[in-house]
Design a protein around this nucleic acid. Structure first.
Lengths: 336, 336
DNA sequence: GTGAAAGCGCTAACAT
DNA sequence: ATGTTAGCGCTTTCAC
């Protein structure tokens, strides 16, 4: 029971492979094939469940109908949710998706891009880049490759972006804390620190403070140094506890950091810090509902990022998108 | 600047396409090509960064070097972590991975299997199936398709499996609760209920109880009816609160359920139930560390599932695996 | 309106 | 030990 192919259909229907191929690809009209024959072909083929050989088709046409998604870590729920949305939309349009993780490693991201574009023949890529600057992507050979960047931008690089308003969200979150009478807020960012998301969030934090006329404490903006995150956070909290006894809020720039903060505060319940400090975090998760203390969070429109990015990429592939497109989505403050 | 192909290499090196192809595919020795020419070819090609056209190769050989992964929901961290591991191992061996979600829908799983096998030409599949029984996969046309099932088994169906010891883990978890003097344990399972994982976990719960000589309360095994999980859990807890005032533990069969239980207990803090009940859950997550009460959990060897399944599948594809293989991994009790 | 035939880039059987 | 050649299954130009 081997696979059906055009030759078989040709035999059974009494039409040539050419004609059948044309009809099946919706080009019947263009080539002037009579409506009657078209209907007959579609009808007959419909019941035979024939699927064209993808490789022959790709070899001939140069289009693979698959696109690649590169994120830093697909095990991160933020990205896996986005990926699910992207996959769904692409499937509806006859595309398939290949997902890979760069592990925040520039070299690996390079390899993945090359692999997907050259080796696999992807028709386009969606990338949450881990690069510091744009020098890799500004190479002329990429000027014809349909690329859409999500989540993170590359400074000074004109490209297609779908991102959230990190600055505005951060500003809003910190503003909320200040309105709640918080005066001294510790901001903990992850690594790597060069990401546009991190920078924008920190800027939002800073500007919200200064706009409220609060003095700037540079030592209250700390970033994790890599390695074990729990231990890292523990050290930071111990340090701050001594130097800033009047700390009254902690802003975690992603949910993993928030989890580590909560764990640590729980273990330090005897300390005064633990008692009064408010917790705020980027990213929202169901788990924040059952935490030992309320978490004020900023949920990201995950589904939107995925769908907007997919549709944009398909438009670019189909030549419908002439200039670069910048889509910025807003976040949503969740108070508990 | 178009892509390099064998013809170009042939021109520049002065060898035929055949010879170069043989050498590049490691078949130089088999075809008796002199070591010297082999070295020369490899050397020259090495600096020209040539990658063979995947589609031409697949068309010719019938092998695509990509494999498919079908899970119920890639946005579920349990599966996204597994997927990351699978991807890594496959990459090392020159394969790529395509991931799709079935959304616990049998029809969609069918479509995905057909799509990956027929349309995309996958060399093999790894599946966390959502099917109730094996009738779909026992079709003769699948007898030659390399398939590995993970996480969930299909009763009475001889196949390649990589799963965890759901029964034993559940038994151990409940045994621990009993040893802590718990006497009445509510067990909440997710939907769909027919999954082997759910059944095995419930059986482990039951047997642990009966082995301790505790009477069976069938109404203490409840399953979510679908729809909003928080609301669902809320109703269950309200109900049980009235009928079983002496409830002293809750076993959640997955982490989403545990999250909902914790959220609800928090809101019901005035109720007596909330005070004394212990919480146990399948699946572990960092978030359990910062919860409003300690969660006893059962972590699953996620990385192992992925790597064992990938290696098994590759062995099957390479014909190294003659009989069906059943790999069962143990869980790890985490007490907080 | 419809069909024959060339060729996408690769591999492997067959020559030499 | 190396090269020639015939396809893999599809699309598309060109001829009728």
């Amino acid at each position: 029971m081997k696979r059906l192919q055009l030759e078989d259909l040709s035999q059974k229907l009494g039409y040539s492979k050419t004609l059948i191929s044309m009809v099946l690809n919706g080009k019947g009209d263009r080539y002037g094939i009579s409506k009657k024959t078209q209907a007959a072909v579609l009808e007959a083929v419909g019941m035979m469940n024939y699927t064209p050989n993808k490789f022959a088709k790709a070899l001939r046409t140069g289009r693979s109908f698959f696109i690649g998604l590169i994120v830093s870590d697909i095990a991160n729920p933020f990205y896996s949710k986005i990926s699910k949305n992207i996959e769904q939309i692409l499937h509806e349009r006859g595309y398939s998706l290949m997902i890979c993780s760069s592990d925040e490693n520039e070299e690996k991201e390079k390899r993945l891009v090359e692999m997907m574009l050259n080796q696999q023949g992807a028709d386009g890529l969606i990338i949450a880049t881990t690069f510091k600057d744009s020098s890799y992507y500004t190479q002329p050979r990429f000027s014809n490759s349909p690329l859409v960047f999500i989540d993170r931008i590359l400074p000074l690089y004109q490209a297609n972006y779908v991102v959230i308003d990190n600055y505005g969200g951060s500003f809003e979150l910190v503003k909320y804390l200040l309105d709640q009478a918080c005066k001294k807020i510790l901001c903990i960012s992850g690594s790597p620190t060069h990401l546009s998301t991190t920078e924008d969030r920190i800027n939002g934090y800073r500007d919200a403070l200064s706009k409220s006329g609060l003095s700037d404490h540079p030592e209250l903006v700390v970033s994790l140094s890599g390695g074990d995150i729990d231990e890292n956070v523990s050290n930071i909290l111990n340090e701050v506890q001594n130097t800033h006894k009047d700390l009254d809020a902690i802003l975690a720039l992603d949910r993993q950091i928030a989890a580590a903060v909560l764990k640590n505060l729980q273990q330090k319940e005897q300390h005064q810090l633990a008692k009064k400090v408010k917790i705020a975090s980027f990213d929202d998760t169901k788990f924040f509902d059952g935490m030992s203390r309320p978490v004020i969070s900023l949920s990201q429109p995950v589904a939107d990022i995925g769908s907007k990015a997919s549709l944009l990429l398909l438009d670019i592939i189909d030549g419908k998108q002439l200039s670069k497109s910048n889509i910025v989505l807003s976040t949503n403050l969740i108070v508990r």
